[in-house]
Amino acid sequence: MTERRRHAIDLDDFSATEIEEILETTESMREVLEREIKQVPALRGKTVVNMFFEESTRTRISFELAARALSANVVAFTARGSSVEKGESLVDTVRTLQALGADIIVMRHSQSGAPYLVARHFRGAVINAGDGRHAHPTQALLDLYTMRSRFGQIRDLNVVIVGDMLHSRVARSNLWGLTRLGARVTLCGPPTLIGPAAFWTATWPTVRISYDLDPLLAKADVVMALRLQKERMQSGLLPALREYTRVYGLTAERLARLPGHAIVMHPGPMNEGIEIFPEVATSPAAVIEEQVMNGVAVRMALLYRMAG
């Protein structure tokens, strides 16, 4: 068993062993969630504060359900209606939460790196629920768990991640996890949303870059579509949505060219008709709902590991 972890801000400091242990614990947590009484006392008396400075539905609710299933006290903190509106700084907020007895802060923030700042001023544990374009470790863990439960292992899987790599915290955290567990990862998207290949291979030497999706389909085990943020068009990085969809959208025709065992993933929320089509999202190959279900169990496993 590896050491108890203090913070979970990105997967960059998770070893393959630790990730495997978390995925194993997730399996047991899924069993808890299948019971009639979906609650165990492991985190009784602990206080988890969900601190969300950015909109989120599934991640926030998922963390809340996970903490409650472990019998923790859960407090939701949202920037709106709080002293943040009066100009309270992030560090002040964290100090206040600490004085109030928080044990774990689960935080989402639009600024990349904000959780590192919080971790420096908080004696308890910090879990990153998404920061800017930097990291989203629990999304990556639930993606890894979903792949592993479908294929038995991650090693040697051909994983194609399609979309806006430059702005995707989901892709970055997945890259850490997937490469550490030995998957073969290809990043695919328009050059303006991927940038130069060296930018990626400097950190993840085994990763491959492709600007063309179609040739990758026949050999893919997993295709993960990222959410395309429409504001990227205004910034001139994308010529037109229809152009993007024509080359990179997961359509029924592209789905038909995947091997029979392949799965389609999406971190949500989806832009249906842009990066993924409804008939693909609801096809048997899609595991998007499974990803959401696994999210609660993965977050339970991580919370337990850090506070249990």
Partner: peptide, 11 residues
């Protein structure tokens, strides 16, 4: 018990 103990399945 130091690092969180391994959790296994109940059946």
């Amino acid at each position: 018990r130091g690092p969180a103990a391994r959790v296994r399945k109940t059946d």
